[in-house]
Design a protein around this nucleic acid. Structure first.
Lengths: 195, 195
DNA sequence: ACGTCAAGATACATCAATGCATCTTAATAA
DNA sequence: TTATTAAGATGCATTGATGTATCTTGACGT
């Protein structure tokens, strides 16, 4: 036996269980009872910490975001780093899809309980990581700052997120490469000499 | 009083009510009772026609798709038609978002009751309209067939859908123009002379 | 005008999830 | 060791939505 868990240890375990349930069953299939069972405990233990499943799910998501943060090292080459970025993001596809089921369920609700900061943090989704990566490329002289104007700078994130939401699965390697080589790089490398 | 509705009339009215409820409350907020009330009738009337809310929602969506089909006339200019396409799509943003709440709710469910054909039809989302529009532009010689290879051809639809799913609102005109002028047209008009 | 059938109203049981109270027991601090 | 606190188990009432049976009544065909 592993004995009885307490305090922070227990809380982390509960949030892990909640996250697993969320990714396996989606937000609509998430229940306090299900989480309690998976965590090997009972509902009152959950009820003492979170008021409803929205709070629980949000806390679980926060824990996941804190646990793995996206990081792409400087490889000296933009294309390499972009592909790495997309590959890394792909490993989180299921989670991203699951998280989105929460937003779609809660959005229309009277009690739109989703905190705005979490919402934007998730919809941005590793925006900073991508941005940092692009800024490095600008400094290297690989691309022009002016080609990274608003709708273009986040394009890869958009393509990725869209694919995940439509298919609930990560984009295959060939598709990621096509995004980079046939869409993104042509746009940011394109000569911009017109008046 | 308007008297008692029957048969096909009644059914159409029920599906209208269901659609309204779906767009106002989302799939998670959709209830048989809510639809019955809005339609000015009672639950048994609904129960005689559809077994659960998934069936009802799907039927309601089908009716909407049949009612307004997207059509963009030949304007002789690709850019004009693309903007018109996006503008037309924007009027349906709320509905698209609502429909997607159904998929996110049902996807993880054991009874993944969403018919595959409807799913693909919706995820494609006016793909044929856009395709027809692009083919006309190719025939006019405005763009090159070879520049419409897979990840590029559906790009505008992707951008649009992503925006709707992220914000649950239609993209403003300025953004739609940016998509067309700064992303899509540069890609499809781009000279492709490299080896 | 009459008969048939479905619309619409009403009532009741059910089911899943939850809120909450209670009780036992293990872990930790003193 | 002992007191305290929270973990974990259990039971019960409640709530929201649904399934379903029954009954009345309006619409339509003949």
């Amino acid at each position: 036996m592993k004995g009885r868990r307490r305090g922070a240890d227990l809380e982390a375990a509960l949030l892990e269980a909640a996250w697993t349930e969320l990714t396996e069953r989606g937000y609509s299939g998430l229940t306090m009872e299900g989480v309690a069972n998976r965590a090997g405990t009972s509902r009152p233990v959950l009820a003492r910490r979170w008021n409803d499943k929205a709070e629980l799910a949000i806390a679980a998501i926060r824990q996941q975001m804190a646990k793995h943060l996206m990081a792409v090292a400087d490889r000296g080459d933009l294309r390499t780093e972009l592909l790495e970025y997309l590959e890394l993001a792909s490993t989180r596809a299921k989670g991203i899809a699951a998280v989105f089921t929460l937003f779609s369920s809660e959005y229309f609700q009277d009690t739109s309980s989703t905190p705005q900061d979490l919402r934007t943090a998730l919809l941005a989704g590793g925006k900073e990581t991508l941005r940092a990566l692009l800024d490095r490329a600008v400094e290297r002289g690989e691309i022009l700052e002016q080609n990274l104007a608003p709708p273009v700078d986040t394009l890869l994130g958009v393509l990725f997120r869209h694919h995940v939401l439509m298919t609930f699965s990560p984009p295959p390697e060939a598709l990621r490469t096509a995004w980079v080589d046939r869409i993104f790089l042509p746009l940011v490398k394109g000569h911009k000499e017109e008046s």
